[in-house]
Nucleic acid binder design. Structure first.
Lengths: 225, 225, 225, 225
DNA sequence: GATGAATGAGGTTTCATTCAT
DNA sequence: GATGAATGAAACCTCATTCAT
């Protein structure tokens, strides 16, 4: 991402890195405390700068929040899109890959906290919601939809209502992220993510894979594997 | 509803109604603006009283919020428990009943906004989260779990990992509520809840029903069967 | 104090007793919590009436406070005046009597809390201070002064500057009351009132009694100098 | 006092001075109106800053008050301790020095209002009382006690019960401070402090100085009895 | 560019006082 | 006379934002 010839003295690189450091600090604190409870002074302190400096890079708290969303969620969408575009194998395997890629890249990371936070704060920031819809939801849905379309076209999944099935597939993944960051923690009966995802994939493939219906049994009977 | 002999001065009747009026106003505003952004003065104003009056009935903002949860969420759980307890028919039909009862009673009402709100704010109010876990999550999970256990015991569902499947079933319902109150609104391609729920029930039963699959025509028309 | 022929039915006596009951409740709470922290609702509750009733008898919080002062401090002054007026014996004994009467009647009772409270709040209520000066301070000083004058006239005390000596005598008694109600409690090394008063009387008489007169001179006759 | 080379921008010099300016303003207002009735906004205004600025230097109202005590009372204790520690002469002279030092340093200044305030408000702010006991009362009592012990050890004072005598000596000084700030002002017959202190010292030395010892006996040697 | 002192609007909570019943 | 529901002013404290240096 960084041109190797663009060498700068360390202190100047430092300057260029400021926004990144601020975004990283903001990510941590927003996830940890929520939007309202995060104080910009703490963000600045964690990034090692003063409060005033933050305002050199971000107009206000709301813009900082939006930048954190852009920085942490949007790229992951692009990666997933690329993964799907280049995949050649059976769609059941693709589904599994998409789910686990998503988990590794978003679900298991701090970015999941941002997803939760957007859900929580979308009402308070209409244009953030707008941005999020366009840059994240639409693209993610399109991506899942295209995966489903490919599978149906190749005869690997039954013909399904693609928009609805898309939502249905997204639900448990969203749920897992929400859970982690709201009432989930502190609960004794916390879900084991891996078990949950396996059950989810199993049930999804059971419902999606073409005839003959998958014989009951294990969580993920992948025919093409 | 009111015994004709139990005449009270208008003023005293007001008193009895006050908590309800305040709770209704609070429900509206919490759903509309979130917890932190809702000002108690506005709640009072909407209920037609002054700020101070609110404190005659609720100790503080957090207690008001808990009362809203108790008023709007908890009873629905109880009703669903009763519905399950008294049901005699096939578990596939029971699942359908539970889902639609939930939808009519919570999902389609303003109470869904409270569910979303709890998810959003749980981190900031630990004892609210605690309260919600005990009063709502545990009871709802237990309820779904007992429905699954009954189905498996009667040989109507395949044997499944009950805790995990419970979460899996809850996910799309939760999703639908979250959606409505965060990024969902304003979206042109909004999900039609009914279509979504039908697809959800279909996929769930497809994955759950014991072999041989339920004969079509009933609650789960499985094309490939 | 109550004419024996003024018999009333119990409920009516109750009515007449209201102000007394309110004053007693107010005394307790003012002493316990101070002026600002005492809520009129609590005063009413302790007197067994409603908040509104209190306002039938006292114009406002300030007037209630003044009434408490009048009720609890002023009468004690009168009693002490009478005690002095009728005394025939040696002035040293009279001093002792005055001190212990004061202690039994005020110092050891809740009224001492009012004395402390007046000191604390006098600034906030100028006309209360005025009232207290006239009704309590002037009368108490006059009383002590007349006791000193009598003692000097009878040759039992040395001739002294009466106003100054009056203050000097009052100081330790005042101190004892203040102490009880401010930083004194909770202290491990709490003063034993009796020991303190004995030491006080001892030192006072030592300084006041006529024979043998302290060698006159300057204000500070330092023997070793 | 300021090194001429330690030039700072005016703005930064302000910063260093702020706490002192705020403490001075707080001292004035606390003494004038008491703790509860002093609004922090007024303190800030008198110091020429805004409400928020005050919170940059003091965590809350109570800490501000403690700082006022620390600034105005505690140092005086230290000075008196030093004065006693280094004194070589006769204890009678030392007593006089301590009394007048106390008067110049505390009694005659606004700090006396703080002493009165603590007595008045201690009940409502338990940890403030705790702080005052430890930082002021214990140290002051210890100081007076050590003065007495020295005097007795050198044979300059009669052997006395040190804790009790300490209290007895403190009483009139405390009284003088209380008086100034409660019912004392506005009184036509206000005490002249100098006259009062002289009488106090005279009586104290009369009671304390060794020779000739008062004929022992009871606490109240009543000649005529 | 960077700093951090200063600002002041804003929200929760308390409680003396009023007044319809 | 008695009640107690209702009022609303007041005060503390927070923190996003500004700006002089």
């Amino acid at each position: 991402m960084q041109c190797p010839f663009d060498i700068k003295p360390r202190w100047e690189r430092r300057k260029d890195a400021r926004p990144q450091e601020l975004l990283a600090a903001a990510l941590d604190l927003f996830v940890e405390r929520g939007f309202a409870s995060t104080r910009l002074e703490d963000v600045a302190k964690r990034a090692g700068v003063s409060k005033g400096t933050l305002y050199l890079y971000f107009t206000n708290k709301e813009e900082l929040f939006k930048a954190v969303v852009r920085e942490n969620i949007v790229p992951a969408i692009g990666e997933a899109e690329d993964a799907i575009a280049g995949f050649e194998g059976h769609s059941a395997e693709l589904l599994r890959i998409v789910v686990y890629t998503w988990w590794d890249r978003l679900g298991a990371t701090k970015a999941s906290g941002i997803v939760k936070l957007v859900m929580a704060e979308a009402n308070n920031f209409p244009d953030l919601a707008q941005f999020y819809r366009e840059e994240v939801i639409v693209r993610a849905s399109t991506m899942i939809g295209s995966m489903l379309a490919r599978a149906v076209a190749r005869g690997e999944f039954r013909p399904v209502d693609i928009p609805v099935t898309t939502q249905l597939l997204i639900s448990p993944m969203l749920m897992l992220m929400m859970w982690k960051h709201s009432v989930g923690p502190c609960e004794q009966s916390a879900l084991d993510p891996h078990t949950f995802l396996e059950a989810f994939i199993g049930m999804a493939l059971n419902g999606l894979c073409a005839a003959p219906p998958v014989p009951a049994g294990g969580p993920a009977p992948i025919p093409g594997a």
